[in-house]
């Protein structure tokens, strides 16, 4: 905790020091940014933008998890399916975000649907790949132990593969949240059909209001970090044994 606070203090310190010599058009300091963020909040613009944004974020993200997690596990359990789908996911994973926006607009229009599809498409590969790696890496010994005790295929899945997979699912969710946030902002920046956070960013930068731009970015970062922290909390309470796994290197350091 101490180390975290120290690194945070250093970052803010450097930011403040850099902003000293710059004009407000170059780099606004921490105080100005927090101030701008405060104004956005008190005027209610931030919250209304947030509610717009979170709608598509939650829908796209949830869909990505609901489909990506089982898909990844299935790929890990059925090796041939895994080998067949893995390259497709990798291709999707390395596809540049913003370059395909025009296509998405063509296919899905400019409403809710396009943002949902966009977030889904960019989150699902990461989620599925991590879950795939997890299911694939189930240690042979653990499966053999179950076989020794005459486990059925079904029992091996529910009592060995799935529990082993739990930390990987959480890792995939953590990474997924990050990606979904990025995809969401990109979608809103490039398809300005709603007044979400992306719109706020676009609007402020058009007005050269850098303090507000940085404020919104800071807010999005805090939002993501908060979501990840919540996820980690849930993970340690659901899978307290995870400590042990990562300690001997068998864990989900993906």
């Amino acid at each position: 905790m101490k180390a975290r606070l120290a690194s945070l203090a250093v970052v803010i310190g450097v930011w403040w020091w850099l902003s000293l010599g710059a004009s407000s058009l170059g780099l606004p300091g921490p105080v100005q940014v927090v101030d701008a963020l405060g104004r956005l909040m008190s005027s209610g613009r931030l919250m209304s933008a947030l509610s717009v944004t979170l709608g598509s974020f939650a829908a796209g993200g949830t869909l990505a998890i609901v489909i990506g997690v089982p898909l990844g596990i299935f790929m890990g359990v059925r090796r041939s399916v895994g080998l067949a789908i893995d390259p497709v996911l990798t291709a999707l994973y390395v596809m540049p975000f913003s370059a395909v926006i025009p296509l998405f607009v063509l296919w899905f229009g400019i409403d809710e649907m396009v943002r949902l599809a966009f977030i889904f498409t960019f989150t699902v590969p990461q989620v599925a790949i991590v879950c795939y790696q997890g299911a694939k890496s189930t240690p042979t010994t653990l499966v053999e132990v179950a076989k020794t005790y005459l486990a059925t295929e079904r029992q091996i899945f529910w009592k060995v593969i799935l529990p082993y997979e739990v930390p990987f699912i959480f890792t995939s969710l953590r990474l997924g949240v990050g990606l979904a946030i990025q995809a969401m902002v990109v979608a809103e920046l490039l398809i300005q059909s709603v007044r979400g956070l992306g719109f706020l960013l676009q609007f402020a930068s058009a007005a050269f209001d850098l303090a507000t731009v940085l404020g919104v970015i800071l807010f999005i970062m805090l939002l993501g970090a908060g979501a990840v922290a919540v996820m980690q909390r849930i993970e340690t309470s659901v899978a307290p044994w995870r400590e042990g796994i990562s300690a001997d290197g068998g864990g989900s350091n993906v």
């Binding site: 010994t141 653990l142 053999e144 132990v145 179950a146 076989k147 020794t148 005790y149 005459l150 486990a151 029992q155 009592k159 060995v160 529990p163 082993y164 739990v166 899978a239 044994w241 042990g244 796994i245």
Partner: peptide, 30 residues
């Protein structure tokens, strides 16, 4: 594998997500 035989693994093969008692009771549980 058959019920007459028990097997001890060199690297223990314990389930890290199971407590000691749930590991030990694994066979009967199945």
């Amino acid at each position: 594998p058959r019920a007459e035989c028990g097997f001890i693994f060199q690297d223990f093969g314990l389930y890290p997500w199971r407590t000691v008692i749930d590991n030990v009771a694994f066979g009967p549980e199945l």
